[in-house]
Design a protein around this nucleic acid. Sequence first.
DNA 1: CCACTCTGCTTGCAATTGCAAGCAGAGTGG
DNA 2: CCACTCTGCTTGCAATTGCAAGCAGAGTGG
Lengths: 163, 163
Amino acid sequence: MALPKVGSIGEYIREQRQQAKISLRQLAEAAGVSNPYLSQIERGLRKPSAEILNQIAKGLRISSQALYVQAGLIEDREPPSDVITAIRADTHLTERQRQVLIDIYESFRKEKRAEDEQTSQNARPRHDSASDDVTLPEELRAALEPYAAASGDDNVTQETKEG
Amino acid sequence: MALPKVGSIGEYIREQRQQAKISLRQLAEAAGVSNPYLSQIERGLRKPSAEILNQIAKGLRISSQALYVQAGLIEDREPPSDVITAIRADTHLTERQRQVLIDIYESFRKEKRAEDEQTSQNARPRHDSASDDVTLPEELRAALEPYAAASGDDNVTQETKEG
DNA sequence: CCACTCTGCTTGCAATTGCAAGCAGAGTGG
DNA sequence: CCACTCTGCTTGCAATTGCAAGCAGAGTGG
């Protein structure tokens, strides 16, 4: 169960190569690997490094991802459906930024939920403003205050608020 | 230019690990590799196989793709902002909430990029305190003002900025 | 001080990768 | 038939991976 089917990567490469009507040696050259090695990879006798895999994908002009998925190295297209998952997976953010985004998102969710409940039965006092209101709970307002409140100064305070 | 920087995969792993506040041995165990090997990978002395890379990604609970991109094994042609996709697809948010989240996210991205350029020179750990400044550009501060600053005013603007 | 437990790193070695060289079979053309 | 050129495969070996064992330093607690 652990390994999807590591061996099948070779078969897959061979299939793709034959479909492209190119010889083993041709692909080997295009991919920058030796032909014996490619032969062994296709037959499952060798476990190519990620780099080699990538070069082969280039040589085949197929998506590297397709190859990695076949190799069981990528979970087959992680569904980005979940906002939190996407945020967590986003390497372009700092951990702190991630946390803030998630906090905001969750507060939005809570708020929206409460709002939805209101439409059926009256639960909470609500702002007059009809559709567009976006409120943040107190804790989050506090968290955002440094950014939203300060208007005159560009330099955000260096105050460290731990934990 | 083509290759981002193959060696940086190790640094990237180390960064992610330290950000997650786990020790080398802990990650090694979580990833199912030996601690000496992980040490060598992080320092760029070893070129891990695709499989190992995948396990490490799992251990770090980050996207395998992010790691492959870092390793220069995937062309990163994919929009790295699955976050935006996820936000757009989230039916539990109001349109206004979505817009705010996306705005914040994008400003974070800009900020992080600038920060990375700064720190790319020295491979040192960042500020010890995780208190990293999370700043928002002026336009965003303005956008958030109604929520963070004042609580009484309902008069949300009707201006629709079609994007 | 001493024992214990973390931290990451170094060493030495079996296992594996990756390739140069070469083999056998099929096809082409003189 | 013979020479040549494809096809993919096998062999043997240097280079590399990946790990068990162990080291040194820092921190904790008796």
